[in-house]
C-alpha cells in the first residue's frame, strides 16, 4: 500500500547535512510499524516526506500506486485530506472548537454529508471513550484525553495511512499505555496502515514490526 524507495533528504545551509539516504520501506494494508532511532536521526523528517509536507531530494513515495513526489502542493493536500490521518506529540487540537467539532474537521474538508458525518463523529468519540465529552472545549481535557481526541480526528474519515509522531511524548505512563492501545486498535479496525515514530520501546512493542532508522538507512530492529 505504501511503497518508499531510495528516499533521500539533505538540508542546505552553512552546515549542510544529509538527514536521510537510501530509505526503502514497504507497508501492506493493515500493517502497523514503529520507526525508532536516536534523536535528530530524521524520524520526523521521514514522516514529513511521506505526508508530502516536505519534498525529498531523491527517491519515491507511492501510496496505493499514486506517486506522491510528482504531485503539486494542491494535489498532495488533497491526498492528505482523503487518505491520511495524523497524530502529533503536541496534540494540535484547535482550542476554539469543541471536541466534536475538532473530530469532525476532516469530514468537513472531504465534504461529508452532515448526518453521516455526525454519526461517524459519535462513533469515533465512543470508540476513544469520549462520548460524553463531545461538547467540551479542549482546555477542559487532560493530556491523555486530548490525544484521544487527536486519534479520533485522525481516523474519523477512514484514512488509508495513519502517521503518528511521538504520540505519547507528552503523556504520563498510564495515559500513554491507553493511547497506544487505542491507536493500534483503531488503526487495525480501519484496515489502515500505520507508522508510529517513537523513542519508547514499550510503544514500539505495540506495533507489528519495529524498524530502526540509522545513518545508513532503515533496518529491522
Amino acid at each position: 500500500m505504501l511503497s518508499i524507495r531510495g528516499l533521500a533528504k539533505s538540508y542546505a545551509g552553512p552546515r549542510s547535512r544529509t538527514v536521510l539516504s537510501g530509505i526503502d520501506l514497504e507497508l501492506a494494508p493493515g500493517e502497523y510499524v514503529a520507526v525508532m532511532g536516536e534523536s535528530g536521526i530524521g524520524k520526523s523528517t521521514l514522516l514529513n516526506l511521506v505526508a508530502g509536507l516536505d519534498r525529498p531530494d531523491a527517491g519515491s513515495v507511492a501510496l496505493d500506486g499514486t506517486e506522491l513526489t510528482t504531485l503539486n502542493d494542491d494535489a498532495l493536500t488533497r491526498v492528505r485530506r482523503t487518505r491520511m490521518g495524523f497524530v502529533f506529540q503536541a496534540f494540535h487540537v484547535l482550542p476554539y472548537l469543541t471536541v466534536a467539532q475538532n473530530v469532525a474537521l476532516p469530514l468537513l474538508l472531504v465534504g461529508a454529508a452532515a448526518p453521516a458525518a455526525d454519526a461517524r463523529v459519535t462513533a469515533m468519540l465512543a470508540a476513544v471513550g469520549l462520548a460524553d465529552r463531545a461538547a467540551s472545549r479542549p482546555r477542559e481535557l487532560s493530556g491523555g484525553e486530548l490525544q484521544r481526541v487527536a486519534i479520533a480526528r485522525a481516523l474519523v474519515h477512514a484514512p488509508r495511512l495513519v502517521l503518528a509522531d511521538e504520540p505519547t511524548g507528552n503523556l504520563d505512563p498510564d495515559s500513554a499505555t491507553q493511547v497506544l492501545e487505542l491507536l493500534r486498535r483503531e488503526v487495525k479496525r480501519g484496515d489502515a496502515a500505520g507508522i508510529l515514530v517513537t523513542h519508547s520501546h514499550a510503544a514500539a512493542r505495540t506495533t507489528d514490526r519495529v524498524l530502526v532508522l540509522t545513518a545508513s538507512g532503515l533496518r529491522p530492529a
Partner: peptide, 15 residues
C-alpha cells in the same frame, strides 16, 4: 502558525 499548519496538514489547500 501551528493552527494554520494543522489545517494545511489535514488538507486545506493554500488557496
Amino acid at each position: 502558525r501551528a493552527q494554520l499548519a494543522l489545517l494545511r496538514t489535514l488538507g486545506v489547500t493554500r488557496r
